[in-house]
Amino acid sequence: METLLAILIDGLVYASWLFIVAAGLTLVYGVMKILNMAHGSLYAIGAYSAASLVGWYFGSGHPPWGSFALFIGGAVIAGMVTGLIIERGVLRRMYGRDEVVMILVTYGVLLILEDVTKLLWGVDAYFAYQPYGMIGRVRFSDLTFAGYDLTLIAVAGLVGFALWYALNRTRQGKLLRAVIHDREISLAMGINVTRIFIVTFIIGSALGALAGGLTAPALSVAPGIGIEIIILAFAVVVIGGLGSVGGAAIGALLVGICRALAVHTYPQFELFIIYGVMAAVLAVRPQGLFVIARARKI
């Protein structure tokens, strides 16, 4: 019973984190058809910005609760700025290339950003643990969870809802969905696709950085933290169906719960679980769980 509860909560916490990372990735793919490897760097930049801000904030003795607004806001802004630079500086010049080439382009950006973060922040770890302890602990019989982790579930829900609302209930969102559906027709209908691209990439980047910023308090923020995330997020996005935000949520839940199940029952399978789930899902649904229908073009 206790194990079951642990699996459920651990799975949910992990899934929330995965979802925030994957949401930006899938949104960017949906609109721009770019599988953005530099998303990992944006995650790292978000984490670094948050960690330095928290360090500075507590170092200068301000009221502790204000740190939340500061580090979350700081991470998001850092992500937006970096996103803007990447889109205007690099991606803009590469539009129209093959999808695989675009992956390689973002890989190049990832390599550069890895060293840029190293030059800016050095190789020594940064810590931002103060906010992590502030929400306290929650006890379920013998299990203790950090309040911060549980809050993350709510934050993920909020991010998901905000995305859903923006995409389905606002004019901008509808324009965005039109571009997701058919870029050429949208262009012909007078939608400013360039602007949509910029906005999408900035939102996607901000989400990646937000994920990094939110995780920073539980981590030692050091070089390389963004690399592991990429493949994980890719898997989630592919499982859910590329470009589908709802799919990313389901994919994250599936991976999160399966992983928690493995850790609590057969820990030796933990390493395979993500690829196992991905292979299984693709074997049944070759294009992921939620896929946008496409006509066969002859």
């Binding site: 206790e2 642990a6 909560i9 651990d10 799975g11 203790t144 995780t215």
Partner: peptide, 17 residues
């Protein structure tokens, strides 16, 4: 847990249990 995984929530629960 995987090298560089960063998140150890599930493992910590398993050890707690």
């Amino acid at each position: 847990p995987k090298l560089g995984a960063g998140q150890y929530g599930s493992e910590i629960s398993a050890v707690m249990v």
